[in-house]
Computed example of a mutant assay.
Amino acid sequence: MDQFLLVLVSGLASGAVYGLMGLGLVIIYRATDVVNFALASLATVGLYAALALYDSGLPLLLAAVAAIVVTTAVGLAARETVIRPLAHGELLTALVMTMGLSLIAESVISTIWDDQPRLFPSLVEGSVAIGGSAIPAQSLLTLAVAAVAMALVAYLFGRTTIGSAMRAVAESAETAQILGLGSQRIARIAWALGLGLAVLAAVLYAPRAGLVPTVLSAPLFRAFAGIFLGGLTSMYGAVVGGLTVGVLDNLAASYVSAGYRDTFVFSFTILVLLIRPQGLFGVRTFQRV
């Protein structure tokens, strides 16, 4: 029972990371129709910048805030120069562009900081005894921070003018323009918010995974599994899907085989999509032809 509790908490902590990244992906996609494959690589740039500042003597918390600022600035600059000039509806082109941005970001990281693995400091140390099990404090902090961040995003979209504007743009950019809502301004806010959530996930994930240029590649694909499982356009689904993927991933690694963890997760995701193509919380859409 104690072992199961450890596996469950660890899975939820991993799932919280996937959920944060998935939430960032969905927010950007809903506001701009862009599937941002560069999200993880851009967040990794922020991680390396944070580690450099931390090594220079800046407190870790301030370094993490600096990572969000750096990633957001780089991401918005990339959007303005590469994504925004594309014609409306160029979804495949935008997808390829973000893949290219991802490769460029990884190359820049390797050039500036090299490819050698590094340690990223934990925000908290030690463990907490729960029911006879020693739960890592970092895992509990990950759950708490992710829960607060997700609650703030829910408040933003449910209770604020900016959130209402972002929902309006997600429904129809043309209608939002008629109502006087600047779609480009909303798109920038969506990118900044999505990138910020990705960096937050990265800061929570890196202490246990170490730091290399591709450290967030696996979490990114598991976040994609989570948003397809939950529903590509559903923010609630991105969170639930990410948590589900995290728990299934850890259960498979602990009770089946670590080599089959991704096989188990993606097989389950495919099975759900075969039964419900729009995901657990997505809405089926119909087009007149």
Rank of each mutant, 00 (worst) to 15 (best):
T233V: 07
S217R: 13
A209H: 06
L216C: 08
G231K: 01
G237A: 07
G237M: 04
V215W: 03
G230T: 07
A206W: 05
F224C: 05
G230H: 02
L229I: 07
Y236S: 13
G241V: 04
F221D: 06
T214L: 12
R222P: 05
G226S: 09
A238H: 00
G237H: 02
A223T: 09
A209R: 07
A225L: 10
A209V: 11
L216W: 04
A209W: 08
A218K: 08
I227T: 08
G242D: 03
F221V: 15
A206Q: 09
V215T: 15
A225Q: 07
M235D: 09
G231A: 06
F228A: 08
R222W: 10
L211E: 09
V240F: 09
F221T: 13
A218M: 12
G242F: 00
M235N: 14
L211M: 07
R208V: 14
Y236P: 01
P207K: 11
G226W: 00
L220P: 02
V212N: 09
V240D: 02
L229D: 02
L220K: 06
L211F: 06
A223F: 07
V239T: 11
G210W: 10
A225G: 15
M235S: 13
T233W: 03
A223W: 04
L220R: 05
V215H: 03
P219N: 12
G226I: 08
L216S: 06
L232C: 01
P219F: 10
L232W: 01
T214W: 11
F228T: 14
G242H: 01
P207W: 11
A209G: 06
F228C: 07
P207I: 11
A218N: 10
V212Q: 12
F228E: 04
G231M: 02
P207F: 11
G241R: 00
F221C: 08
